[in-house]
Computed example of a mutant assay.
Amino acid sequence: MTDTSITAPADPPISGDDQHLRILSTTDLAGMDISLADVVATVEGAYRTLHAGRSDNPRKLTVKPPDGHSVSYAMLGRDGSRDVVAIKTSYKHGLDKGRAEQHYYTSLTLYDDRTGLPVALMDCSRIGSLRTPAVSALLARECAAPGARSALVIGTGTQGRLALPFLLTTLPDLDRLMLSGTHPEGIAAVREQLRDHFPDRDVELVDDLRAAATDADVLVATAGSHTPAAVEADWLKPGALSVLVGHGLAPSTLHRADRVIATSEAQMHITGLDMADADGELPAVDAEFPPVLAGSAAGRRSDTERIFAYNSGLVVTDIALGHRFAQLALAQGLGTEVPLWR
């Protein structure tokens, strides 16, 4: 496989003081320019550092009420290449309602483990919207069949809108880009993001999901929980790679896969239970992604294997990308310092 890895920029130490905390709002982060290649390199570096044993990424904690109307996560981690400790929290309310009625909040707090001082507290929504499709693109780079030329994205929400630009960043030879979605504003946003990053490319909106899935070398399922889309295993052609981010793949794509890759097997057993079989079981994972990325485990063993990849977020990637944004914010004088500990 051709080495298409990108070197991430070095992150110098950035700390606040023991009385103030720099707050980076949604608006602060939205105004920062960062290239797709920069994001991919930063995320890839975080995975490699984790595999080398220099970072810590414990299992996430989950709280969910009995009726399932909300879900909360807390993730603690340490990035060993940056010496940064961070806590990420996520809270989604209204899972029993439509997208417009849901509320979602996520934040990331960073501390410099060399100085012992805080770095920043930031809205983590943009970080997640970049980190997740970057991971899918890295999974595609490592696990797609050689010569993959077609990609299908299912869903037009936050995670679907940058899926194709990131895929083109790691697999520039893709020549057929397909989209399955039902929300007009989401479809328009997918096209806008693709034009922003690749002005000469366009996406084909598909109505027949089965036919599109049969033709796709790479499938990325990012749809919300209410989607009717559910690609079945027998729709997939030999060599297809299916990446699950949200919803859009039926459990058969996991249980009948020739090979299963997960960013984290432990997290898959927390957040992937909707893919369990009739007995509530998930199949064993053949390899986790950090060793695949590092070259110590195989992502793909043959051109005809149908591979299922589970993309669940690892907090070390949030830390790395959050620290990169904090670095850019400091250089641009963005954010508000709050005398939190005074």
Rank of each mutant, 00 (worst) to 15 (best):
A233D: 12
A329D: 03
G53P: 06
A134T: 00
G157L: 04
A211G: 10
L334H: 13
A151S: 08
T49Q: 11
S242H: 02
L219V: 14
R195Q: 14
P339C: 09
T106M: 14
R141P: 07
D38F: 03
V285Y: 07
R191I: 05
M275S: 07
I6R: 12
G239R: 05
D200G: 12
Y104I: 10
A262L: 03
A250H: 15
E232T: 12
A211L: 12
L50W: 07
R126G: 00
A30N: 15
Y47V: 00
A163E: 07
T4C: 11
Q193P: 07
L167C: 03
V135M: 02
L209Q: 07
D11W: 10
A230Q: 11
L314F: 08
V285F: 02
E142Y: 14
R114C: 10
G116N: 06
R324A: 11
V285T: 12
L254G: 05
R301F: 06
I87D: 01
A46S: 14
W341M: 10
E192T: 15
C143K: 04
T214G: 15
F325S: 05
T304R: 14
F289D: 02
V203H: 04
A266P: 00
A266M: 03
K60Y: 01
L108P: 04
I14T: 13
T109L: 15
L328Q: 12
F198R: 13
G80F: 08
D3A: 04
L21E: 06
D175S: 14
H255V: 08
G313A: 13
H69C: 05
M178S: 10
L76H: 13
A230N: 04
D3E: 13
H93G: 03
L328K: 11
R59C: 08
D17G: 10
W235V: 03
G181Y: 04
S302L: 06
A137W: 01
A188G: 08
Y310W: 15
M1N: 11
G333Q: 08
V85I: 15
D217L: 00
D112K: 05
A163F: 07
S107I: 09
A240F: 06
R161I: 10
C124K: 07
G280L: 01
V260N: 10
T304E: 14
R54M: 13
G313E: 10
L209A: 04
K64F: 07
P228A: 10
T132I: 07
P58E: 05
V190H: 04
